[in-house]
Design a protein around this nucleic acid. Structure first.
Length: 565
RNA sequence: UGUCCCGUGGUGUAAUUGGCAACACGUCUGAUUUUGGUUCAGAAGAGUCCAGGUUCGAGCCCUGGCGGGACAACCA
């Protein structure tokens, strides 16, 4: 009974506006099953903003036991490339979504689209126009002023037919002719002012090669492709809202049954401090500000993956941000919370020192060493334990020692006692410095009774430090990637030189980090939580096979705040 | 000067047929802790853009303002 009550409670979880539409369509039997699609243009890598759309479209079909196509909207060969097709497939699969049947391409429908265009010419709903780009602009009018009709608007049907065929057969140079729909040049909606259907492009297409030299425009391809595939709910972003009347206009001309796909718009994802403009991301890659599309500083899915983000964290993030029709900015802190939440459960803990400071235990036997038990993941006992080597000379983090500690500093200082995690209590006796006053060595004594980190007399220490044995430690490179962009609202400054968006300190490389030896066996892509420093992802250097760690996200760092105050 | 969309704590999303605005992130306390992490407990923070109207009662309905966004590529 309570279980049932709980179930009801879960079901009552509020629906977003798209789910409301879908449930209503299912209830009224408008559709027996829903069918969505994710339609990227293969002209760049997918980023976190696309992830929202992917989770939405594929998620909807999963939740309502429907279907979802992956369709490449490849109607502009000059911008598109197979490299992008491959990366997009990989990213979607990595996120854990499955598309229905084989992958679709808008280019698969070029023939059908051509036939439909011919039909429109015959029904006097389309004509071949020969206005130049400049004239087009002039004739189009502005959002507040009506346009004027093309002199070719009432061209004879047979003449249009013949010219259109000539366009297809490559008889005319680019720009000579256009196929346009005949709708309404005085419509307040610019998209209804005799929109272009086909343009001539002598460009080789990544799939159809040189078969075609005329290519359909987005508006003439998208809705029809939805129709051909049986899509019920065509979910897209808000900027396509003004295209909807045109979308419907074409469907009206095309549909010969009750069935119609419905375009539904939602607000695209904006993230604070993050630029997601494809144009700018492309520029970053082309001008070598970053290594590639998957550079861990990039907001691309592949960049986040290399940085150590998990598919689950991105899907959870997507659930949390919700779906609506109002534009806003999601705080990037929510994204980071999502990955911390996930990694906190999954990532093994490990000790490492980024900026080593040598500690010598004076009363520890010279050539002795021992292996101490360390828990891999306190959240998950099944992750087991590991042995960590301990010896007379150790490294600790430079910032874990202060000669003149402030009031709330709980770590090592002269005459202070702290615990070395999983090892012993140590107490600092003195330090050795060079002539420039830099600390070279911190000398301590240890309490042999406190092995494992507990003292039999029950005395407490306030601080617990991570450490690494100097002679056993592996030296490795650690790269700390930060978000590349640090402008609060990048979209607000569209025209600003994007170089201003680049955070010069977005990458710090530490090449003398000392780590626990067992990390030698770490696999590429594995994530670890370095004690007190954050989450890191193994990213072996492909040229040298050197062990490299990328910072996924830092821990919540209260100490930094205390220090700042 | 046009058409369309949107306006709920700092941020994002909720609120059954109108019924004293909820959740998450963030922030701040406190407790526990072999990570200044995690976990747990708690607090602050909006009266729903404004003004009218309908109603016993409005974030939800109506009217009028104000504010923000989209639309003038042979891009998608």
């Amino acid at each position: 009974m309570t279980a049932e009550a709980n179930e009801n409670k879960d079901q009552k979880k509020s629906l977003n506006f798209i789910e409301t539409i879908i449930e209503s369509d299912l209830e009224t039997k408008k559709h027996d099953q829903i069918f969505t699609r994710f339609p990227p243009e293969p002209n760049g890598y997918l980023h976190i903003g696309h992830a929202k759309s992917i989770c939405l479209n594929f998620g909807l079909s999963e939740n309502y036991k429907g279907k979802c196509n992956l369709r490449f909207d490849d109607t502009n060969p000059v911008k598109e490339d197979v490299e992008y097709v491959e990366s997009i497939k990989e990213d979607i699969a990595w996120l854990g979504f499955n598309w229905e049947d084989e992958i679709k391409f808008t280019s698969d429908y070029f023939e059908k689209l051509y036939d439909f265009a011919v039909k429109l010419i015959k029904s006097e709903n389309a004509y071949v126009c020969e206005l130049s780009p400049e004239q087009m602009r002039e004739y189009r009018g502005t959002p507040t002023e009506p346009g004027k009709e093309s002199p070719w608007r009432n061209r004879d049907v047979n003449e249009s037919l013949k010219l259109f065929e000539g366009m297809k057969n490559g008889e005319f140079e680019e720009g000579k002719y256009l196929l346009r729909a005949k709708i309404d040049m005085s419509s307040p909606n610019m998209h209804m002012r005799d929109p272009i259907l086909y343009r001539i492009r002598f460009a080789s297409h990544h799939r159809t090669g040189d078969t075609w030299c005329i290519y359909p425009m987005y508006d003439f391809a998208h809705g029809q492709s939805d129709y051909f595939e049986g899509i019920t709910h065509s979910v897209c972003t808000l900027e396509f809202e003004v295209h909807r009347p045109l979308y419907d206009w074409f469907i009206d001309q095309l549909a010969d049954s009750e069935y119609r796909p419905r375009q539904i718009e939602f607000a695209r994802l904006n993230l604070t401090y993050t630029v997601m403009s494809k144009r700018k991301l492309l520029e970053l890659v082309e001008k070598k500000y970053v290594s590639d599309w998957d550079d861990p500083r990039m907001p691309t899915i592949s960049g986040l993956r290399r940085r150590g983000y998990t598919p689950e964290s991105i899907r959870n993030f997507s659930d949390k941000i919700g779906v609506a029709r109002r534009d806003g900015f999601i705080d990037v802190a929510l994204l980071e919370h999502s990955i911390r939440e996930d990694l906190n459960k999954k990532a093994d803990r490990v000790m490492g020192v980024l900026n080593p400071l040598k500690v010598i235990i004076d009363n520890y036997p010279e050539d002795s060493e021992e292996y101490l038990d360390a828990v891999n993941n306190p959240e998950d006992e099944s992750r087991g334990k590991r042995k960590v080597p301990f010896s007379k000379e150790l490294y600790i983090e430079q910032e874990d020692f202060m000669e003149n500690p402030p009031r709330k500093f709980f770590r090592l200082g002269i005459d202070r006692e702290v615990r070395l995690r999983y090892a012993y209590f140590i107490k600092c006796t003195h330090v050795v410095k060079d002539d420039k006053d830099n600390i070279l060595e911190v000398h301590c004594t240890y309490d042999p009774e406190s092995k494992g980190g507990k003292s039999p007399d029950g005395r407490k220490v306030k601080g617990t430090l991570h450490w690494v044995s100097a002679k056993h430690a592996i030296k490795s490179e650690v790269r700390m990637y930060d978000r590349l962009f640090t402008v609060e609202n990048p979209q607000a400054d569209k025209e600003k030189d994007f170089k201003d968006f680049i955070n010069e300190n977005s990458l710090k490389v530490v090449d003398n980090a000392m780590l626990e030896p067992h990390l030698n066996n770490a696999k590429k892509g594995e994530q670890f939580q370095f004690e007190r420093m954050g989450y890191f992802c193994v990213d072996k250097d492909s040229t040298t096979e050197k062990l490299v760690f990328n910072r996924t996200v830092t821990l919540r760092d209260s100490w930094a705040k205390i220090k700042g105050k």
